[in-house]
Amino acid sequence: MWRRLRARPSAVAAAAVLTVLVLLALGAPLLAALEGQDATTYHDALIDSARGGMPTGAYGGISADHWLGVEPGTGRDLFVRLLHGAQISLLVALGATAVQVLTGVTIGLAAGFGSRLLDTVLSRLTDVMVALPMLVLGVALTAVVPAGFPRPLLLIIVIGLLNWGGTARVVRAQTLSLKKLDHVAAARLAGWRPARVARRELLPALAAPVITYAAILVPTNIVAEASLSFLGIGVKPPTASWGQMLSTATTWFRADPLYVLLPAACLFATVLAFTVLGDAVRAALDPRERSRLRVGTRDGSRGTPAAPAGRIPKGAAA
């Protein structure tokens, strides 16, 4: 698999972008110290109250002290705030993906293995979860949670628990088709207990589709976090988040375009890199990928579909 991933320039580029991003997020305190700024100090001297709070100086107040300028209205250091945004984005997205995968695999396996009744109940539940617009429920839920609850954790739970349906479907379908394979029957005939048959014959074969699906979920979750923060119900100020910066930017885009472009570029690059990497992982793990290289053999000129129908994750946050 690694060999096949490395063979794609786009995957290598995406991985490089993500490595830099993770390093920046991890090294945020160090970099902030290097610049000599923090995320929360207001710099009234650097904004021009006569012009409604625009940063003084060209390009949003870029200077040796403030490498990427300051925030309009508050004068907080933009570079450090972007770094903190990266931390929140990655933390929430990866955490939520973990929750989604765990929940989805558990429910999918239970439905695939359980009795007909259990399967019906769980599949219905999955249908409901897949059908519900995640963002709507996520937004609604934040209304009833006590204010003191740690926000990043809340976001992980909300996004995680609302969007496991796709994983559960994939796992259930895969389990059902694997169950029909004769080597699973053979393992039963060999005299193994059902639990052991599941662990040895089924779980390894489930890994590929689950990894593939998880890789598609990460960028979706990044967008979900940014969206909630954009709507003003994500992380609480003064914690910085890209979505929330973009939300503030809606009032500044005429005067200070750089304040829109910086968080937008960060968010876009991250989501794109994860999407490209997810695509590459899918292609590398897809058994049909091998046949794609063999166009023109006995199977003729068959193209391989970009994504199997029904596997397109929801979460196009509108």
Binding site: F230, L246, A249, V260, A264, T275, A316
Partner: peptide, 12 residues
């Protein structure tokens, strides 16, 4: 297109 959230497209 898939990688750009609506609020970025919209703002741009």
């Amino acid at each position: 297109g898939t990688a750009t959230p609506v609020f970025i497209t919209g703002l741009l």
